[in-house]
Amino acid sequence: MSTAPPTTPPRAATLLLDLGPLAQLRAGRLPLRLLVLAVGLALYGASLAMMVRGDLGLAPWDVLHSGIVRHVPITLGQAVIVMSFAVLLLWVPLREKPGVATVANAVLVGLSADATLWLLDRPDALAARVGLMVGGVVLCGFATALYIGAQLGRGPRDGLMTGLARRTGWSIRLVRTGIEVTVVLLGLLLGGVLGVGTVVFALAIGPLAQLMMPWFVVRLPERRDP
Rank of each mutant, 00 (worst) to 15 (best):
A165R: 02
G131T: 02
G67K: 13
V138P: 02
V92L: 14
S112V: 07
T177P: 06
L211W: 15
R176F: 14
Y147H: 13
V181L: 15
M50H: 12
A4W: 02
L25W: 14
A13M: 03
L41D: 03
S112L: 03
G163T: 05
L41K: 08
V82C: 14
R219N: 08
G45D: 11
P31A: 13
R53G: 01
V92R: 15
P9G: 14
I148L: 13
G110M: 04
A127V: 07
T102M: 03
A128M: 08
V134D: 05
G206K: 03
V72I: 11
T177I: 07
Y44G: 09
A209W: 06
L190N: 05
A125K: 07
A86D: 13
V183F: 11
L15V: 09
L119D: 03
H71D: 07
L35Q: 03
D124A: 15
L139F: 03
R26K: 15
W61M: 12
V196A: 13
D62H: 12
P207G: 07
V36F: 09
V107G: 05
L194C: 09
T182A: 15
G169P: 01
L160A: 14
V52E: 13
N105W: 00
L76Q: 08
P5G: 08
G159K: 00
L146N: 08
L220R: 06
V183C: 06
G45K: 05
L58G: 05
L25M: 12
I148G: 03
E96G: 04
V69L: 14
I68Y: 09
T75P: 00
L89V: 14
L108D: 04
A86C: 15
V134P: 01
L64T: 07
A202C: 04
T182C: 09
P10S: 07
L111P: 00
L119A: 15
T162L: 08
L37I: 02
M51W: 10
Q24L: 00
L56Y: 12
V100Y: 00
V196R: 03
L132N: 04
A13Y: 04
A13V: 10
L22Y: 12
Q151N: 11
V103F: 00
P214F: 05
P10R: 11
